[in-house]
Design a protein around this nucleic acid. Structure first.
Lengths: 336, 336
DNA sequence: TTCATATACGTATACGTATTCACAGCATTG
DNA sequence: CAATGCTGTGAATACGTATACGTATATGAA
């Protein structure tokens, strides 16, 4: 079946190309008889309009861009990102948009993506996942008036639309949970200093402690990366303390897994001697031994909000608020 | 910074729009002095060509389409797909293409995707992941002469370009591994009947047994779905046999996890009394107790081949073969 | 000098669609 | 009955780029 144009459909229907276009766009000012004739020809020939021409003419591509600040390898490994991407695909589709995905960690390729997707008008808007604290593109994007939404936080400019987890609340909730189980000496195995997620969850942890009348003890807080090895090392150190913790909040499930391993190797019973809780409710939480309690972030809500806000911006609808905070919830398993 | 066109760049450089286009396309037939002048103006104004106009004119979009036959929810859950998507993003980028991703399980939306991506010329080519055995789109795609590549198998028509795991080899390898450990009574917990992956791995399993002079015993093969629950149930049944297996090949890591759980609950030691091996080498394999041996499929190779073949088809280069088979390798851990 | 050839550039056009404009036909109004 | 508005339609145009084509200048050979 060769590619037809409106021109040819018009000829076959004995109308003008303009009328074909009007029929396709559902313009009411077209005679019913003609409309039927044109629709019949379109149906018979299986005509579908050319998206490229439509884009050029209408200045709309019907495509959203998704840029993730992770190397493809990291992306493949972390279930959080894959779930996020999958959900964004879904919601973009529901909103009538396609999705163009790019991933890049290097600054150089980040610039390229910026040029390639945005300036070329290849997409109508952008979702940026976890931008850096200082991201030189933010001001430029704002300046261009290009529609974009952040998943994560970006403090410097509050004109930015963003959707984020309630990480402070999540840290608070995890700690609260352990306090409720009677624990009084609770450690926090964090990630990198200066990363919003880690700082925020730590802040929630601290607030829960203080509300319970407990002092924040720096020796019970471990900084490192997001690896299983970091969880293992930190837990080993904590267990060696003169007055070891009876419960541990780990900044991420993978880190928590490392902590679990260390505890088991030290012959410490979980959750009897040490309780452990992680974040993200990764799929593997239910498979590890013992199954890991975790604070689940609502990835679908995150994706839904981000997509919806972006589409509203593109279609120039009113957007009620610039910052959205998505609440988390606790999934209790055997490790606490 | 407002959007410029070649027209305006031309005016600023005191040349024609055609010359600007030639400079941008690297046409050699343009005076060096002029070229520099134009490039300077382009640089100063940060001009980037409009991809939509380029697409319309050149009949190329510079975008690949990826269609996955899974609901977004399944997609989010299965690490295999997320890794695959991540790798395809990477290789498409390296090949100078963007990636447009869609996912859909329903037949209805499948048709829509077909119309939306292909007939609208929104993408230059398509990667289809695990199409159904009878997929009505294959003949149509072939008929249109539209470039596309399958990840998975499609038997009916061999004019189709495809890239697939060596699933037979993988099943053979897993079984071989267990035979090498001295096991003589080996079970196979499969997935759905009629799914290529399950049948093929089963075929490899069977061949390994027969080469070792062992009979294929139907009571040692369990059919079901891809769930953890199926693994659990099947393992429970197998352990209740008068002559239970000493080793189990599970069609998927998640199924294997279920089997592990059943064994533990029955007080059966792993790997001393029953060895277990899975497929895919999912990230969680190293976190479970005991860590799970698994046959790793080379996802990056799969993605790389598919992307490369597709790009070659689009750019009308010679493609050496229609079917590519990617070998697997075994990752041994404590469960065997 | 004269013609052929190559080179470097501009003019014009096409890609397929959406939309503005103009106009014909008809109904409605004072 | 003239003036006015409304409806449905086609002609023309614009979106921004790439390229076929034509032409002016430079270069070389006769």
């Amino acid at each position: 079946m060769p590619d037809l144009t409106q021109e040819q459909i018009a000829e076959l229907s004995r109308v003008s190309q303009a009328t074909v276009s009007r029929v396709l766009r559902g313009d009411p000012r077209v005679n019913e008889e003609l409309r039927q004739r044109v629709l019949e020809v379109i149906r018979q020939h299986g005509y579908v309009p050319d998206a490229r021409a439509q884009s050029l003419r209408s200045q709309r591509t019907g495509t959203l861009g998704l840029v993730v600040h992770r190397s493809p390898k990291q992306l493949a490994r972390d279930p959080f990102f894959s779930a996020l991407i999958a959900a964004i695909i879904e919601f973009a589709g529901e909103g009538g948009y396609h999705l163009c995905v790019d991933a890049a960690r290097a600054v150089q390729s980040r610039r390229a993506i910026y040029e390639d997707l945005l300036r070329t008008r290849r997409v109508d808007g952008l979702i940026l996942v976890e931008p850096q604290t200082r991201d030189e593109r933010m001001p430029r994007l704002l300046e261009e008036g290009f529609p974009f939404v952040l998943i994560g936080r970006y403090e410097p400019i509050d004109a930015v639309y963003s959707v984020d987890n309630d990480n402070i609340g999540a840290g608070y909730m995890a700690t609260q949970h352990l306090l409720g189980k009677g624990h009084r000496r609770i450690a926090y195995i964090s990630g990198l200093r200066g990363i919003f997620v880690c700082e925020d969850r730590g802040q929630g942890y601290r607030r829960a402690l203080e509300e319970a009348g407990l002092a924040y003890a720096p020796e019970l807080v471990a900084w490192g990366d997001f690896s299983e090895a970091h969880g293992y090392r930190s837990m080993s150190r904590l267990l060696g303390l003169p007055d070891p913790p009876t419960a541990v909040v780990a900044v991420d499930d993978v880190v928590a897994i490392g902590a679990l391993r260390a505890a088991k190797e030290h012959g410490v019973a979980i959750p009897q001697q040490v309780a452990v809780i992680g974040f993200n409710d990764s799929p593997f939480c239910q498979y590890v031994e013992p199954p890991l309690s975790s604070v689940a972030v609502d990835i679908r809500a995150l994706a839904h909000l981000a997509t919806q806000v972006l589409i509203d911006l593109i279609e120039e609808r009113e957007v009620s608020q610039r910052r959205h905070i998505v609440p988390c919830h606790l999934v209790e398993r055997a490790s606490t």
